[in-house]
Design a protein around this nucleic acid. Structure first.
Lengths: 342, 342
DNA sequence: TTGAAAGCGCTAACAG
DNA sequence: CTGTTAGCGCTTTCAA
């Protein structure tokens, strides 16, 4: 594996000159420049990024810490980060936490050890998260999808409260009064905020909020299945269920189907995340479509700009989601009479 | 950010001693060891992997080059690689090629520049792929899902020919005689091998093989849609379609649905890859389920073992897939009479 | 059992 | 416009 010295020797110049032409620094005579390029070509020289990183005390790697790459929500986010990272000559180190704070901690330590230029992460909790540690070491961090409340950092989220509010208000307008909620826990931004929208919609419509209808736990498929079953087992079960993310929706969908309940005749279903399957099943599911690729893109741009200018102002970006009205909701009929105006 | 020297100073020992205890090398007095640990703790010292990498001339990073993380097939493969990498104290750099040889080349160069310890990749072509370059530089490579034919390297694949053969034979047994194929091109292992199984099934059943029924192009959803439409536009259209991977299946499924054709009454559908949606739609799709997680796991184990022992024998692992018989296939009725014995 | 010193490949003053 | 030199943080002989 050729080194910069090999190139220098072959080109008959010094290491610094090679370095200069390869980094487009200062003035180098045209002919010298060409000699260097020739040598680089001839040797198939690839600069060692690790040597460079050591010298300049920062790599060209962005750390990306997410909950689980197998969660489709993160998939396009990851792709977006990778796209802009590569366009800017950076690589990404990917790691999963499975919502486990300890694993998150280890991953953060890993990123520090690798001296990454910056980190993009979906914190597993709003407080006590290792974001602070990174910040203290002057490693730029941007939180995506979720925020942390106990320190200031760049953040990219979607407007969870508003979308959730809109979605639930829509159900209420259609006459639903008992709306079950299957959500992530409130120590995760998305769980807390989507619950907030849910509550707000009830409040503004003057509707009694039965807390038995609110179920929260880890946003995983199996959990969604269990929580939905609890809802369905209620003496006075909900006429509609709101699933807080795509995994929870999957579990909920399964629970409903296994009981032979028909959507939307027997029960309505709405959820967050416009995943493939939601438009492939019948009926198609009404969902909040989050701009996941866009979120990843913004996050990557943010972290890159902070890498280049560490003292710019803290930026919080909130992206708009879209409601996709499909076929999994039907007005709730009470006393053989349609209630609502939609 | 503390360095090894800071730790040494605080512990009152030399750099080398710190290095020794942190790497569990040779004998270090118990008391010294503890002093070092204390200092590490107190300073929150995280060894610089980049300095270490430079010194030992190899990082603890595994490069993972795939076609597209948004293709669900790769998602669990990536997760598996990450799981075993992390369990072995390695990180992964992820990059996508979109089946673009040029982007693949750039990604390989990147991995070289990062001096990764090894690379796991799904080559975009069976020949002329940059695997050789890596091998020449003594960087271990394992090919996964697809192989390269012009150089020797560790490989993990599933038994594509056999699975495809089995699947098509099943259709033939049920009376299907005109089976459309929507596949990846033959310069990709999976395209070539699945076509081979398709042909073999026809051959062994003595069935005429109409090449108009075979469509091959990039394994992308949009392409699957287009190819399926071409099949459906035929004067004598197929009674069943075989989609070569999950993306092609999605496009095919869409094309069929858009024409108002019913599966399996009007046309049968089978595909590779047991994706979520294939069991959520109705009818559920009959598929070949590949052990994707297992493939990633094996690949990661292979690359790690080669990193540790570069002169072990070349290993080719073929994993078994499973046929999942579901509801998207129905015997083909000819002249109002059921043909076949199933 | 420990320390001193060299050096991995690169960049960045500084000098010329 | 180009070369010399020092040093980033670590590991590894070699000596003690």
């Amino acid at each position: 594996l050729a080194t910069i010295g090999d190139v220098a020797d072959l080109a008959g110049v010094s290491n610094s000159t090679v370095s200069r032409v390869l980094n487009n620094k200062e003035y180098v005579k045209e002919s010298t420049r060409n000699k260097v390029y020739d040598a680089v070509e001839k040797l198939g020289y690839k600069p060692s990024r690790v040597a460079r990183s050591l010298r300049v005390n920062s790599s060209q790697i962005i750390g990306l810490i997410i909950s689980d790459i197998q969660n489709p929500f993160f998939t396009s986010l990851v792709r977006a980060v990778e796209d802009v990272a590569y366009a800017n000559n950076h690589a990404i180190i990917l790691s999963n936490t499975d919502e486990d704070p300890q694993r998150e901690q280890l991953n953060v330590d890993l990123m520090i050890s690798e001296r990454v230029a910056g980190v993009i992460m979906t914190p597993s909790s709003e407080i006590n998260c290792p974001v602070q540690k990174l910040l203290k070491l002057d490693i730029p961090v941007v939180c995506v999808d979720r925020q942390v409340t106990d320190c200031e950092t760049d953040t990219v989220v979607s407007n969870n409260v508003a979308s959730s509010f809109e979605l639930i208000s829509y159900l209420i307008e259609l006459g639903h009064r008992r709306i079950g909620a299957v959500l992530a826990p409130s120590n995760i931004t998305t769980g807390r905020e989507r619950l907030e929208g849910y509550k707000k919609a009830h409040h503004e419509s003057g509707i009694y909020l039965d807390t038995n209808l609110i179920k929260q736990d880890d946003p995983k498929r199996r959990i969604g299945y269990d929580l939905a079953n609890k809802l369905l087992d209620l003496k006075d079960p909900p006429t509609a269920i709101f699933a807080g993310n795509n995994l929870l929706a999957l579990g909920t969908f399964q629970a409903i189907n296994e009981r032979g309940l028909k959507i939307p005749e027997d029960i309505s279903l709405v959820s967050f995340d416009n995943r493939e399957w939601t438009q492939l099943v019948s009926p198609k599911i009404t969902v909040v479509s989050q701009p996941t690729y866009e979120m990843g893109k913004k996050a990557a741009e943010l972290v890159l700009s902070r890498i280049n200018n560490s003292d710019s102002e803290i930026t919080k970006i909130t992206l708009e989601s879209k409601l996709l009205f499909r076929d999994s909701v039907k007005p709730f009929v009470r006393n053989k009479e349609v209630v609502g105006n939609n």
